[in-house]
Design a protein around this nucleic acid. Structure first.
Lengths: 233, 233
DNA sequence: AAGAAAAAATGATGCAAATCATATTTTAGT
DNA sequence: ACTAAAATATGATTTGCATCATTTTTTCTT
């Protein structure tokens, strides 16, 4: 399903394009080349190994970016949401996406052909610089993750996973309590390199410790501070 | 000790600046703002937490980029050499270098003030795009490393470390045999999150298997192919 | 060249965590 | 609402590896 409207009237001010391109550029260039797709829950936006064809910008929804492991051991790289760019990791010499991207919620996603996106970068230096800066930041986050994985034990890793999820998808409006109902135990495990049953185990520990509540497989974080304390070193 | 000469006469064609800036820009802008420093072996170029002041470009030598762990457990992020940019990881909101950089060989390193470097990016879009691309590539490598760390066992990790070292510092001119004499067991361990004595153990296994030779603490890789086989999955 | 200090090699032990097996709960389909 | 399939919870077992201790080799200093 494809829908389309001009970036001029878009209200997503966190989008790289919207933020850094003038109305003129949008009208004359971007609107002619971009498209919007609606991806249903569980639908793939692209797969690891696909030729890097497009660059995506999330308008709404939630996306899981991950590596497919050999033995059904996937590895979640990050969660992306409204305002995030997607597919930019494919700007590597191999010319293929090094990761897969899958909607975990119905998502509206704009996209530009990669080739055209690079033309755009030539025209709008500010865009290039900001893209470069967001790469720098992503690299830093990746490094932090790498350190976490080598330092933390299972309990701490699960805490990291919950914190990551909260940070990715935001907090509840009222309290610091969040429903995590989009993600399975398996997802949580893949986020921090564990097995699903290990996650279950720690989650039940957390329940006993009064850090979370679990009702019908839905996790509610009742003490975010306690989670932060677990991972502080 | 500070020495200086124009980038115009520099023979380092792999340098981002040399590669993407016109002679005009070099003469009028870069030469006025850049400097070269000679760093002796073991000397620090910058430290984790330092305010991001400069951007560095390695002219010669070898540099170790690493994270300082709490319990004397450092983590080597990468090795950098001639042609590599250094300090660009400091382009993050915190405004400090997230890693430390230390010469592991006498090294000539050019540098530009960060502030000026960003002016330059405005002037030379091609430079910005290529910097962005090199970030993308670094990110990919980091991801690969993260997967390796979660998938590989101790033996495989040591193989990864040796391969990384060979890839970083190149192969010997004659055969596929390489002397690794700049790095201690501790360095190898920190590259893949192990302890020095674990590295020693695996290295002696490798010796028995005829993959390496060790003479006076110097490692010679006699079967690079065998190493590659160990980490192929 | 000799002695001291540092690095590397080797071995032994305890524990965390990966793996496997099974029961229970939840979700999805008719 | 009922049944089948999937996801989750819980427990038992084993293996890998981190840690510690000690000896040997290498490097550094004078």
């Amino acid at each position: 399903m494809t829908i389309n409207r001009s970036c001029i009237v878009c209200d997503n001010l966190t989008c790289l394009i919207k933020k850094h391109c003038s109305d003129e550029v949008i009208l004359n260039d971007i609107d002619q080349n971009k498209d919007i797709n609606l991806y249903r829950n569980r639908q793939f936006i692209f797969q690891e190994g696909d030729f890097t064809k497009n660059v995506f910008f999330i308008l709404s929804g939630k996306v899981k970016v991950f590596l497919m492991g050999a033995n059904e051991k996937n590895q979640i790289v990050r969660f992306s949401k409204r305002g995030d760019i997607l597919g930019h990791r494919g700007f590597i010499p191999s010319g293929v996406y090094p990761v897969s991207a899958q909607a975990i919620f119905d998502s509206e996603i704009c996209y530009l052909p990669k080739k055209y996106f690079f033309n755009l970068l030539d025209k709008v230096p500010e865009l290039t610089i900001n893209l470069m800066l967001s790469f720098a930041n992503e690299l830093f986050q990746e490094e932090t993750k790498l350190r976490n994985m080598s330092v933390f034990n299972v309990r701490e890793k699960v805490a990291v996973a919950l914190i990551t999820i909260v940070k990715s998808f935001g907090l509840d409006e009222n309290q610091n309590i969040v429903d995590i109902d989009l993600l399975s135990r398996q997802d949580i495990a893949e986020l921090v390199g564990l097995k699903a049953n290990q996650v279950t185990k720690v989650l039940s520990d957390f329940k006993v410790d009064g850090i979370i509540e679990i009702v019908k497989n839905k996790i509610k974080i009742t003490s975010y501070g306690a989670l932060e304390k677990i991972v502080s070193y």
